[in-house]
């Protein structure tokens, strides 16, 4: 009995490892390419890991100025996240506490998020051309903010509704203004949700390809768009693709690593009432 149980645990463990290898291998391969020399990349049979870690591929990206696209992405995604979080949270507060717009406004707002980007990107492009906002920072920031707001409002509304109203009322009676109660009572209570929502908002803007592709030319190219430039008709620049991908993945990895605690709590928050 005991032996059989040990047996099945070992089997499950082996299956998990196998799956993990299958799914992680492409990522591993990409990362390794980023640190390989051109000879190693194209050697046959392939080498499993670089003979020595070297950063020439990254250096090349910085020298050519391509690395700037990562900073564009950081700036655009970061700024739009901040704005969307601020506006979205106070809008959510209004929906949750003052019943702004009744029962249906919140659903109407989140339904905006369900529009496929491709369906609106070309009308928006024409509008942006007319406004002269194509290939500008504020153009993309505004677009991402607008696109993320429904998500932020929807999520934050849920978190805020879970904060007992009495806590806020107690703060009001105790000497806080509405803003004071929001800052001192509501924000600390929804902190995990705030971080979790911010990470998802950031990641959406960070990973977006379609808006960035259509709305940018050369000035504010974001990193996903830049990666596609390395796929040529004649050949693919694997070293650059890999190095750029590593640069692009790094901030998201870091964000998730540092905020994991909040993320897990934030996502599960409100899942169980009480």
């Amino acid at each position: 009995m005991k032996r059989r149980r040990r047996h099945s645990t070992a089997l499950r463990f082996a299956a998990a490892v196998l799956l993990l290898v299958v799914f992680l291998f492409p990522i591993y391969w990409l990362f390794m390419i980023a640190f390989k020399t051109p000879e190693e990349i194209f050697s046959s049979p392939p080498t499993w890991y670089p003979a020595s870690i070297q950063f020439d591929n990254f250096r090349g990206l910085f020298k050519s100025g391509d690395a700037k696209t990562v900073f564009n992405s950081l700036f655009i995604a970061g700024t739009s996240t901040l704005i969307a979080m601020f506006l979205g949270t106070i809008a959510a507060y209004s929906l949750a506490r003052f019943r702004t717009g009744g029962e249906n406004l919140a659903v109407w707002i989140i339904s905006q998020r369900m529009i496929p980007p491709i369906a609106i990107v070309f009308p928006l492009f024409l509008l942006y051309v007319w406004l002269g906002w194509v290939d500008t920072y504020h153009g993309l920031i505004l677009l991402y903010t607008a696109f993320n707001l429904p998500y932020v409002i929807w999520m934050m509304r849920g978190y805020i509704e879970d904060v007992p109203l009495e806590l806020e009322e107690s703060a009001l009676v105790d000497g806080c203004t509405r803003w004071g109660a929001l800052l001192k009572v509501v924000f600390p209570m929804v902190r995990n949700g705030l971080f979790a929502t911010a990470v998802f908002t950031f990641v959406f803007a960070w990973n977006d390809f379609i808006f960035a592709l259509v709305m940018t030319r050369s000035e504010v190219t974001t990193y996903p768009v830049q990666v596609t430039h390395y796929f040529g008709a004649q050949s693919n620049f694997w070293a650059k693709i890999a190095a750029m991908s590593v640069l692009g993945a790094a901030p998201v990895f870091l964000a998730v690593a540092f905020l994991q605690r909040y993320l897990v709590r934030g996502i599960s928050l409100g899942a169980v009432k009480g």
Binding site: D174, C176, T177
Partner: peptide, 13 residues
């Protein structure tokens, strides 16, 4: 406003 009424309140919960 509640804060300026200078009251103290104990809530049910």
């Amino acid at each position: 406003r509640p804060r300026d009424r200078n009251l103290a309140m104990v809530f049910q919960n």
